[in-house]
């Protein structure tokens, strides 16, 4: 699981530019299922189980990650960018990136701290104060390597931290992709649809199309969610806690989840002794928002990996949660 996740996280694929992730996944699931790629770039896979399932189940995860897009080039050769998906400027400033098809190395710079007024130092930098520097001395030189509209991704390695943690970009939601690849490669009791989705970070767009195509009765969304179990956050503000297992939420900003499936998840967790928790804040959202209202409605549940510093180049996850999340999801896929 760790190796699979590592390979997936190191692939670049911001929203609308998921092809490298898609090709990797197709290579992994080939021979284990029937699949097609739809007009948006979603992979829709059908895995035959030992038995037919009474109701159609769609399991989904999204392939895209947050990043930046080049909007224009300045005379001094630096690149102006906009965010793709929800990223705070503090996650971008002073970080390293790769730009465009040629994967040109760059850095995100701003005025040196010495030259910023005392007041401005207390404010978050504006996106318009930042630029990506690839070392080009002027606009002409920059345009030899980069075009407007090209994608910018974080240059961030996959590192183990302490005894149980990993640090990488794009754990949201390559974790879900890794889980689905593993499930497809294993033997399942019942027929299951798996959807690897595009464009989650820019409005749950892939999910809308895929849920229509599959027309499921029930859906299980595999995600990564904010863990704020860090100093300064107390009680419910922590949202969820690493090492305490997958997060099964009753409600977030996009969805009120199926009570029936919510109860089933905790029932299974109890029965099998799998650590499992719920979210203590109504925050965030995911593809469930699009899926649960597809066609005439879909009973939907999300199981998420607790992830610190999500939507940054250095997201941190707990390997114990990877395992317990996989266990719970596997059980749910057999029992929904």
């Amino acid at each position: 699981m760790k190796e699979l996740l590592k390979e997936l996280c190191l692939l670049d694929g911001i929203s609308g530019d998921e092809q490298r992730v898609r090709e990797y996944i197709l290579d992994k699931i080939k021979g284990f299922c029937e699949y097609s790629v739809d007009n948006l770039g979603n992979i829709i896979a059908f895995k035959k189980g030992k038995n037919k399932r009474d109701k159609k189940l769609m399991v989904s995860a999204h392939m895209d990650e947050v990043g930046l897009i080049v909007t224009s080039v300045n005379d001094d050769g630096s690149l102006n960018v906009d965010t793709v998906g929800g990223i705070e400027t503090s996650a971008i400033i002073g970080k390293r990136v790769f730009v465009g098809e040629k994967r040109i190395s760059g850095v995100v710079g701003s005025a040196a701290i010495h030259n910023i007024s005392k007041e401005d130092r207390k404010k978050a930098p504006k996106l318009s104060d930042l630029s990506v520097d690839i070392g080009a001395p002027d606009k002409n030189e920059a345009l030899k390597y980069v075009s407007v509209g090209e994608c910018v991704t974080f240059d961030s390695d996959f590192t183990e931290l302490g005894d149980n943690k990993i640090k990488a970009k794009a754990i949201d939601d390559r974790f879900g992709c890794a889980v689905m690849i593993k499930l497809i490669q294993s033997e399942l009791d019942f027929d299951t649809f798996f959807a690897f989705l595009v464009q989650e970070e820019v409005g749950l767009r892939g999910a809308k199309a895929a849920a229509y195509s599959i027309a499921p009765d029930a859906a299980l969304v595999i995600e990564a969610t904010t863990a704020c179990d860090i100093p300064g956050a107390e009680e419910e503000k922590r949202v969820c806690v690493q090492g305490m297992g997958p997060v099964v939420s009753f409600m977030d900003r996009s969805t009120i989840y199926s009570k029936e499936l919510y109860s089933l998840a905790f029932e299974i967790a109890n029965e099998k002794g799998i650590l499992c928790q719920t979210k203590t804040m109504i925050a965030g959202g995911n593809d469930a928002g699009a899926i649960h209202t597809a066609r005439g409605g879909v009973k939907t549940l999300a199981v998420s990996l607790p992830c610190r510093y999500i939507h940054s180049p250095s997201s941190v996850a707990d390997m114990r949660d990877l395992e317990s999340s996989y266990e719970l999801i596997k059980q749910l896929v057999q029992r929904i």
């Binding site: 503090s90 130092r121 183990e160 931290l161 640090k167 956050a233 610190r308 510093y309 180049p313």
Partner: peptide, 25 residues
């Protein structure tokens, strides 16, 4: 302003320890 989510090395007497600066959601 640029500290959140930076990767750092803690130069401990027993060798470098990788770390990440926390980022407040």
């Amino acid at each position: 302003r640029l500290l959140p989510a930076q990767k750092v090395y803690v130069i401990s007497p027993n060798g470098d320890i990788s770390g990440v600066i926390t980022s407040v959601p």
